[in-house]
Design a protein around this nucleic acid. Sequence first.
DNA 1: GATTTACGTCAGCCTTGTTGACATATCTCA
DNA 2: TGAGATATGTCAACAAGGCTGACGTAAATC
Lengths: 182, 182
Amino acid sequence: MKQAARTRPLSPEPPDAANEDLPEAGHADDLIELLFFAYRDFVSDPDRILEEYGFGRAHHRVLHFVERNPGLTIAELLDILRITKQSLNRVLKELIETGYIEQRAGTSDRRHRLLTCTPRGRRLAEQLAEVQGERVRRALAEAGPAARGPASRFLLAMIDPTDRPGVSRLLAAAPPRPADEA
Amino acid sequence: MKQAARTRPLSPEPPDAANEDLPEAGHADDLIELLFFAYRDFVSDPDRILEEYGFGRAHHRVLHFVERNPGLTIAELLDILRITKQSLNRVLKELIETGYIEQRAGTSDRRHRLLTCTPRGRRLAEQLAEVQGERVRRALAEAGPAARGPASRFLLAMIDPTDRPGVSRLLAAAPPRPADEA
DNA sequence: GATTTACGTCAGCCTTGTTGACATATCTCA
DNA sequence: TGAGATATGTCAACAAGGCTGACGTAAATC
């Protein structure tokens, strides 16, 4: 891939004293690239499955968050995905027309569209979550289960501070999956 | 953003015994979503800067890896980015024509195009790396500096096993930045 | 009853990915 | 030396998924 050059410890084991006194100098670069590569492969598994259904990543994201948060409204989905309603509507319409997602009017406010997955939609969403979950579990097994807490905290801290409460609420609200296959 | 529902510890502190005996059951879902949100915000900083230059994310990726690995060839870049040569060529041509990247023929094999940044290209690449690095350092400071190792190992383990040696070589080969501003 | 809110939709544009085909320079090997 | 493989460049067409701007409608709010 590339001719090697210098050497530098890749994933620093518990820092053996010294050099821990510069906690925020340099070293950020590795995490930048790791995030790129990790994300690149992270989305590649679902991509392969989605292709069989004629869907793309945009459909995946919608399906995922609706499945994890039944009753989600359009506005909430827009806030999560950070795209325009026109972009959302394009893929959402397809998911509804092909019977993966259903709408119903809100009870307290009938202008709201409450989104839920159909059984078929749930199956696909779970299949997609399963391949991604498998990758995550494999990674945790390799990195050591103790890495889960720190990795979660790091990723949460990477999110814009303003959005963290919302994300935390979202995570807390989602039903825990039945130990996925395991 | 969303009406709260159940409660569940978000980023588990050192697990207080029990429940650590199912190290790979469930719990993967939070990391899936955290990765989505973290990446979403992670790329948003550069996006704002790139807009001023009339560039997009594709340009950023090319510029980044060329700056970090001077002398990179087209084939190596294609392997990193996982896109077609036509897609790469489109943005690369723009970066060359606008004077951000230079080509020269390889010495041992003159078919190779060795890519390097011009001073102007280096400045932009560093500016982009700086905003992302700032976010990473801020996140590490919040998550605790001890999270760096585990987070790095987790992200590396998320990468396809086949690619890890290449990624590690890439990380090791890149010149350590001069403690970025700090 | 006027205004605001939540959503739907039409039309057009841009970036960035794709495939397929073909051209050129250079290296390698028989 | 000549055949073939390799590294790259390029043209053309297309698709996904972002975007803006404008407009329409139903329901809530004041």
